[in-house]
Structures are given as structure tokens and as C-alpha cells.
Computed example of a mutant assay.
Amino acid sequence: MKKIILKIVLGILTAIAIMALGFYFFLFLNPLDIYQSNLLKWIPIFIGAIATFCGGILNKNTPIKFLPLLFVPFCIFDLFSFFYVPFIFVLLLIGILVLMLTRNSIRKTHKVLSSLVILGIFFFFLFSQPLILLRADSEFDDQGKLTNANVLWNFDKDKVLTFPNHIVYDEEGTEFDLKNIKDDTYLITFWATWCPPCMQEKPELEKLKKELYKNTEIKFIDISFDSDIDKWKQFIKGKKPMGIQLISKKEKLTRRLLQISAIPMHYIVNPDGIYKEYESFEQAQKALKKLSVQK
């Protein structure tokens, strides 16, 4: 029994170490300068598969009833905002299939099928998101488009971007569906009170709101990522920002749905509900002012 416990603990620690190193390599070192690497789903799939395989090899003869403990390291995905429904089920499925590859009791045919499913899932997520390598001269133009970057593939480049059905909340706790943002031009800003760049940008955002408030066809929505709702409400009450004030109670899911790698992040939505994203407030401001002149 002691040997079993020792192997399980060693497998857990090994998997945690591999996951930590993997995320450090891809998200922090990022030697390839992968654009928005923290949003690419194939990275946690790749890291999780290797980590689980190593933990499984160390426990290839451990009784099956103890193997669920090898999924404890998956909690580390929460640190990097990948532990959310439904993606966590994909990670768990990968983990189960990988463990099958390490078991001596599993037939070779089943191992081959498991390998094919693992590869199929990996390549599906690999190509379902753009893979872009940044260069020293990469930048965003006035339309919020990344220029001077090496696009290895981007099968969504011609895709019309609209907000999905996703619920956020106002100060009273009333639901607001992002899908309903249309019929006017909107500047949507994602922010948080704990975000220094957001707070630094707030005065300029409010200045822009006052400058364009007479244009009834342009509206502003600020969506907070604060986990402390009371702190958010205190800020709203004290500063009285213009526009609609909302908060996301599922930050990780909101980030994933809208591919938000960092805040503040800005979206200009046209009356048809089609949006463009802007990492720079200055670029968003210029684009919105041009629209205001046109109107």
C-alpha cells in the first residue's frame, strides 16, 4: 500500500512540475512570440497530455481505483483560466485517453484508437484558432488589426464577429445578454478596479463619453471583471461613470468567449451587432470619432 501511495504522490508531483514548466515556457518565456498564447486551447491540451502520460507511466501498474488521484494536477489549469465548462471536460477526456495508453492491461487496438482520438482533438483545437507569430515591428493599425505579423494560419479571418449569448449583470443583478448589443453603435470596455491600466485609462474614457454624449446613436457599456461586486458597486456609486455599467460573474468564460487576453479591452459594435476589437484605447477612440463624424 505504501508503494502505491508513493507512486501516486510521485505521479501527481511529476505532472504538476511538467504543467508548471509547460505553462511557463508557452505563456511567460514564449520564445516563439506566439500572439495571445494564453488563449490558445491546444497549449493546455498538449501540456496536460504530456503531464498525464508521465504520471501514468509511473503508475502503469497501480490499481485503477487510485488513478483518479492523478487528475489532481488538473487544478493547475485554474491558475491560467482554462478550468471552465465545457473545456475542462475536453481536458479530462484527454487525460483519460492518455492514461489508457500507459496501462499494460489495455489492448493494443484500444490504444491505437485512443491515440487517434487524442490527435484528432489536438489538431481540431490547433487549427480552430489563429496561430500568429509576432515580429519586432508588429503593431495594431487604426482599425484594430494586427499588422507586420507572421500568420501561420487563420481560418477565421473572414468570419463575421458578433457577441454570443452570454449573460452579464447590472448593479441590481438584472441579467443582460451580450447578444442584444446591436441597433446602435457601441463602445464596449472590459475593465476591473484591480487593473491599474484600466484605472489609469478611466478619465480618458469618461472624457470621450462626455464629448460624444449628444450623439444618441453612440452608446457606451463598461463591463467589469471584478470578483468583489461590492467594490465595483462602490466605485460606480462614487465615480458615477457615464453609460451602462455591467459586471461579469463568470470572468473566465467571458474571456474565453470573446478571446480577451488582457484588459482593458475595447470593442466597437456596429448596429448589425458586428464588432471589432481594440487593445489600444487610442485606436478605439479614433475609430469611434470617425464613426461619429460620419453619422
Rank of each mutant, 00 (worst) to 15 (best):
L152R: 06
H266M: 02
K290F: 12
N180R: 07
P73V: 01
F127C: 10
P241F: 07
Y84P: 12
G144P: 05
Q129E: 14
A136I: 02
P130G: 07
I274E: 06
A136N: 08
T189Y: 07
D158A: 11
S128D: 15
Y213R: 15
L69T: 03
N104Q: 05
L134G: 08
I34K: 04
T189P: 09
E139L: 04
N30A: 01
Y275V: 05
P264R: 12
F28W: 14
E172G: 14
K60R: 07
F23N: 03
K157D: 09
G173F: 01
F225S: 08
L119Q: 11
D184G: 03
D183P: 13
F123H: 03
N148P: 03
F155T: 00
H266L: 02
S292W: 01
Q234N: 00
A284P: 14
D228E: 02
K179L: 12
L119W: 09
F127D: 05
K7L: 14
N104Y: 05
K214H: 09
E251I: 14
L291G: 00
I5L: 08
A17T: 03
I244L: 15
A262D: 11
K3T: 11
A149M: 02
W191M: 10
I247D: 10
S115V: 12
M19H: 15
L257R: 13
N104A: 11
L32K: 08
S37R: 05
I236M: 04
R255A: 03
S105A: 07
V151Q: 01
L67M: 12
K290C: 05
L69H: 04
I244H: 12
R256T: 12
I223P: 13
N215G: 08
L40T: 06
K295N: 13
I244Q: 15
E211F: 00
L91E: 07
D226V: 01
A262R: 13
L29R: 02
Y267R: 01
L99F: 12
D142L: 14
M1P: 14
D272V: 04
L133S: 06
C198E: 05
K249R: 06
K239S: 15
T102R: 09
V168H: 04
F80A: 07
I18L: 04
P197T: 03
P63N: 05
V85D: 14
A51N: 11
F66V: 00
K233N: 00
C198T: 03
R135P: 06
